[in-house]
Every structure is written in C-alpha cells, then in structure tokens.
Amino acid sequence: MTVKQLQELLNLRCISEGSEDRQLEGGFCGDLLSWVMGYGQYGQAWFTIMGNINAVAVAALHDIGCMVLCQNSTMQPNALEKAKEEGIWVFTTDMPVFEACGKYYEAIK
C-alpha cells in the first residue's frame, strides 16, 4: 500500500510530508537506532516512540517509507525541521505500537 493508504487505515495525524505516491513494503518496530539500521529495511513503515533528531537521520539514511510515532510520543522541534527538510513522512497516533502494528499487519498479511 502507499503511505497515504496507511494514514487512512490507521487514522494517523501527519506532521511531515514526503512524496505522494511513496510505496510501503511491510513494517518494522523498534526504538534502538542501530537495531533499526541493521534489521529494518528500505521502504518499511517504522513504528516507534523515538522522535529525536537521530531517529530522523536513521529514517533518512535508510530511506524508510514513513515513521509512525505511537502512543502520543512527539517529535522534537529540531527533529521535525529535519524531517520536513528531508521530505520524510512522519505520522503520530495515540495507539500503542502493538495496536498500530497489529492493525497494519492484519491489513497487509
């Protein structure tokens, strides 16, 4: 599915936009950055609570499809600025990681 379709599916709030037709290839969850670098994959939806500038760097360098900040976690202002600059899709949601991933998994499995 596309990032836009994921947004609709999970009713996500968008705080930073990327390219309209960005395709997603599965997903990944984790908050340890090198873990995400090592086991996450290009084009995935990344479910996390880590909203700092280093997380944005990981998303940018790894070319992650989109970030989904779960359970009301927020993105620090300097991080959000960088995300917008780099054109990275970032969403927020009240849902815990477990629930957000579960719904996404159901939809694509």
Partner: peptide
C-alpha cells in the same frame, strides 16, 4: 536514552 547502545553499530558496518 537517546536510542543508541544496541551494540549493533560495528556489526552493521561489517554487514
């Protein structure tokens, strides 16, 4: 607390 320290940096470089 910043998200580092998984002990995956050097293994990732190798990979």
């Amino acid at each position: 607390s910043l998200g580092f320290g998984a002990g995956m940096g050097l293994p990732n470089m190798k990979k």
